[in-house]
């Protein structure tokens, strides 16, 4: 017998939303590591690293996330890693998100006036000391609103992990819809849960941006 869509299914979807959040956290941490590296490579006074970072961003922003997910899901086994959707998704989101965060954070770094770098240099600071003590503290303020905005993109993009069988909110929606034959209600609930996760962040990002522009 086909069971109907009830409270228990909503609880299942809520439970699956935990994995969406978990995956977002893992993806954000991985993407931050890649993003910091790429952003610093973009401003380093050594052209091979700059070119590498530009090429990386161009390639990643020119290919669909699905290709990364599937390519890594099937490709990592060639390198001898076990085929595990979580591992593949974590690597794919880190590589993919890193390019976007790298570009956002580079934008924040270059928004600081060149004279600040020169002031650091004239105090005898090395390149990395200028970056660490002069530029980064000032650019964090600029970087936060778009980073929160990117977090919304990341939450939405984790839905693609469903396609390699990782059971998060969207995948749970597919399973529930198959079990109850109520796709409309199920996907509407899934969409509502995503909205509840994303909308507060969107609003927060907007208010941060207003504050930033107000302060200037």
């Amino acid at each position: 017998m086909i069971r109907s869509f009830g409270m228990i299914d909503i609880f299942y979807l809520l439970a699956a939303a935990r994995w969406t959040i978990m995956l977002t956290v893992v993806a954000f941490l991985g993407a931050s590591l890649v993003g910091i590296t790429i952003a610093v490579f973009r401003v380093v006074p050594f052209w091979p690293l700059r070119w590498f970072a530009v090429g990386y961003i161009q390639v990643v922003q020119g290919t669909p996330l699905l290709v990364w997910l599937f390519g890594l899901y099937f490709g990592l086994s060639i390198l001898g890693f076990p085929v595990n959707p979580w591992f593949a998704a974590a690597v794919a989101f880190s590589a993919y998100g890193g390019a976007f965060l790298g570009e956002i954070w580079r934008g924040a770094l270059v928004s600081i006036a060149k004279t600040q770098w020169e002031a650091g240099a004239s105090l005898g600071l090395s390149f990395f000391e200028q970056l660490r003590y002069v530029i980064v503290p000032q650019s964090v303020r600029v970087a936060i609103p778009p980073t929160v905005g990117f977090l919304v993109q990341l939450i939405k993009n984790t839905s693609l992990a469903a396609t390699i069988g990782l059971v998060e909110l969207t995948r749970e929606g597919q399973l529930t819809s198959a079990a109850t034959f109520r796709p409309f209600v199920v996907y509407l609930t899934v969409a509502a849960l995503y909205f509840l996760m994303c909308f507060p962040l969107t609003q927060w990002s907007r208010s941060l941006e207003r504050k930033l522009h107000g302060a200037r």
């Binding site: 939405k156 993009n157 819809s177 796709p183 509407l188 969409a191 909205f195 994303c198 909308f199 969107t202």
Partner: peptide, 13 residues
């Protein structure tokens, strides 16, 4: 604030 994949499933399924 909702994923394209879910929008697509909502329309198609």
């Amino acid at each position: 604030n909702t994923p394209l994949l879910v929008q697509l499933f909502l329309i198609f399924f």
